[in-house]
Amino acid sequence: MLEIFQFDFMIRAFIAGTAIAITAPVVGIFLVVRRYALMADTLAHIAFLGVVAGFLMNISPFIAMIGTSLISVFCIEKLRTSKRLAGDSLLALFLSGSLAVATVLISVFGGFNLNLFSFLFGSITTVMLSELFIIMPLCLSVIFIILMLYKELFFISLNEELAEANGIKTNILNTLIVVLAAFSVVVSIKIVGALLIGALMVIPVLAAIQFKRGFKSTIVLSIIFSLLSVLLGIFLSYYLGIASGGAIVVVALFLFLLSVFLNRNKK
């Protein structure tokens, strides 16, 4: 057996990594096709603020991340529906705003023993057994909800007005997508890192889209690319001693470029 599988932390990293790899693109595709790709990055920065706040208040980073994410999602959706700000400005505001608040908190209450680097760039050694019991059910719930609402989510991605005209509750589904994205970010942050989770949700989807297939096939392809990225990335991270988030996203980027190359003749 490979040496890599003799360590419990590596096995935990692979289990969590597999769950994340399936969840991220399944949610990510709905963000990408709705031109909401930056939402994942915004949520990741908000989650990072949650990590810092959670540490200061001495509560579990997961609880703190979910808390800050849900509050922010609520605010973003309120502001979006009030049409006070355009969607992309809104995301820019929350993305940099939450990072700014996190940085101020770190500076003011500096010197705490928190491995911020691993939260920003991901680390394979940090997933604890107790956290697997949070990550796994969350990933399964996200996937289950998307499977149950697949046809409605596809419909609003096709055309919101048509869906609404057919009596589909588009507002609820829109908020739901963002909430599911927030959960995907929260479960991925330890392995992929806040700065790079957005890339894992988006790049495998972009690679899959290059193959010019239908929606379902595109989802399946994006899961394959995402799994390859995460699992290869964890291997690279272990053997080369590099941050796992970077390794995962670099593999994803490579797969994207390969997909572009393989499909260069399709119009």
Partner: peptide
Amino acid sequence: HLPATVKEV
């Protein structure tokens, strides 16, 4: 912008 087949639509 949506990757989808005619039938899916």
